[in-house]
Computed example of a mutant assay.
Amino acid sequence: MRIDVKRFKVVNSEGNVTMFLTRNALRNCFSLARQVNQLRASISIGPQQHHGTFYELRTYQIKPEHNTAFLELVNEKIHLRTAHSELLGFWTVEYGGYNQVFHIWKYDSYAHKAAVRAAVASDPQWMEQCISKVLPMLTSQDLEATYLIPWCKIEKPPKKGVYELVTFQMKPGGPAVWGKAFQAAVSAHAKTGYSHLVGAFHSEFGPLNRVHVLWWYESPDHRAAVRHTAHQDARVVAAADLPLPICTLFMHSTRWSYPWFEGRRLRAFISTGPQQQHSTFYEFRTYHIKPEKNAAFLKLTSEKIHLRTAHSELLGYWSVEYGGLNQVFHIWKYDSYAHRAEVRTALSKDPQWMDEYISKAIPMLSSQDNEVTYLVPWCKIEKPPKK
């Protein structure tokens, strides 16, 4: 049977774009007129479709100079939004693409979501006190509709800690194709006590054939130690017949459930292996500078970088000559995740660093990215002999 695929854009009252995928099989007997007026979604196969509940994953990219103001405003006004529907979690990004927020909303059905969005758009407090102010602070918005995998249910974490969201690109066909093998691999981590599984979500709209697995750990350092131990466990190794993850996210949280679920989303490709027998890691940072501010940014950084290196070790700082222009790339060394957290706290309380550098440098940037890395086991840092 041949499948014709068409895509439709639907723009809601807030300017968000939702992509709908429709399939028209040759055996379909609907008339052309009815096809034009009806959206039919490509529904993945699997028992999760027996109920209509789904989870919407949203990611907002914030302009660097508005990040603090955005978070403060949302913290004050999020109760206006959660009065309309259930918020499962809200995080800010710590590792990966900086200046992002990531949140998960629960809906009973697509009709329920449409009713909620209509109510939200008609809520004068939400629109005037929050939306009208936060939208100009954003550079982009993305969303993805997901279902819980059939054998999974939401398990609240036992206490405060960090969360890891691992994203896998699966073969087409849904849980009926890869469900059993995937369940065995995930259960090998959860049932052996290495990790606490919060939930596993299968994409329905947005990038298709993706699975997001949400884990809980006591801390990033605890996660690193557990991963190293787990991958020496024969039970885990035997069940680990999975595709490579697209990305891994860590998330700090303060509490589970709305009205305000704050946390940090951290992205890091952390491989298992001998290098994780010690906790030292290297943070790669890339800043994209507004072209007209490039010279001023480099001059300011040259004058004030000593305020930053007073807190932790800088391995190197470079400006890009070939490739993406108007960028700087720098590497910072940390003894552990706890060490980095201490450094970041100290920096935020350093008046010279905040007043003389951060307040001036951040408005010059268009975006910030970072990545956590470990040295490959057989490698050590070798300083160059000269310039």
Score class of each variant (00 low, 15 high):
Met1Arg: 05
Lys6Ile: 04
Lys9Ile: 00
Val10Asp: 02
Asn12Met: 05
Val17Thr: 07
Met19Glu: 12
Thr22Trp: 05
Thr22His: 05
Leu26Gly: 09
Ala33Val: 07
Gln35Ser: 04
Val36Pro: 00
Ile43Pro: 00
Gly46Val: 10
Thr53Ala: 13
Arg58Phe: 11
Pro64Gln: 13
Leu71Ser: 06
Val74Tyr: 13
Ile78Tyr: 14
Leu80Phe: 08
Arg81Thr: 10
Ala83Tyr: 10
His84Ile: 06
Leu87Thr: 04
Phe90Met: 05
Phe90Ala: 02
Phe90Asn: 03
Val93Gly: 13
Tyr95Asn: 06
Gly96Cys: 13
Tyr107Phe: 15
Tyr110Cys: 11
Ala111Thr: 09
Ala111Phe: 11
His112Pro: 04
Lys113Met: 14
Ala115Glu: 15
Val120Arg: 13
Gln129Asp: 15
Ile131Phe: 13
Ser132Thr: 04
Ser140Pro: 07
Asp142Gly: 07
Ala145Pro: 00
Lys156Ser: 03
Lys159Cys: 02
Val162Tyr: 14
Glu164Ser: 10
Val166Gly: 00
Val166Leu: 02
Phe168Pro: 06
Gly174Pro: 00
Trp178Met: 08
Ala188Gln: 04
Gly193Val: 08
Tyr194Met: 12
Leu197Lys: 02
Leu197Pro: 03
Phe205Gln: 10
Leu208His: 08
Asn209Thr: 05
Val211Phe: 15
Leu214Gln: 01
Tyr217Pro: 04
Asp221Ile: 03
Ala224Val: 11
Ala225His: 12
Val237Glu: 07
Val237Asp: 03
Ala240Phe: 11
Cys247Leu: 09
Phe250Trp: 12
Trp256Arg: 09
Ser257Cys: 03
Phe261Gln: 13
Arg264Val: 03
Arg267Lys: 09
Ala268Gln: 14
Ile270Val: 13
Ile270Phe: 15
Pro274Leu: 00
Pro274Glu: 07
Thr280Asn: 07
Thr280Ala: 10
Glu283His: 08
Phe284Tyr: 13
Arg285Lys: 10
Thr286Gln: 10
Tyr287Thr: 02
Pro291Ile: 01
Lys299Tyr: 00
Lys299Asp: 11
Thr301Trp: 08
Thr301Lys: 01
His306Leu: 08
His306Ser: 10
Thr309Ala: 06
Leu314Pro: 03
Leu315Tyr: 06
Leu315Asn: 08
Gly316His: 03
Val320Arg: 09
Glu321Tyr: 09
Tyr322Gly: 04
Gln327Phe: 11
His330Ile: 00
Ile331Lys: 10
Lys333Leu: 06
Tyr334Val: 03
Arg344Ile: 12
Arg344Gln: 11
Ala346Arg: 08
Ser348Asp: 07
Met354Glu: 14
Tyr357Asp: 04
Ala361Ser: 14
Glu371Asp: 12
Glu371Gly: 01
Thr373Gln: 09
Tyr374Phe: 15
Lys386Asp: 12
Lys386Tyr: 11
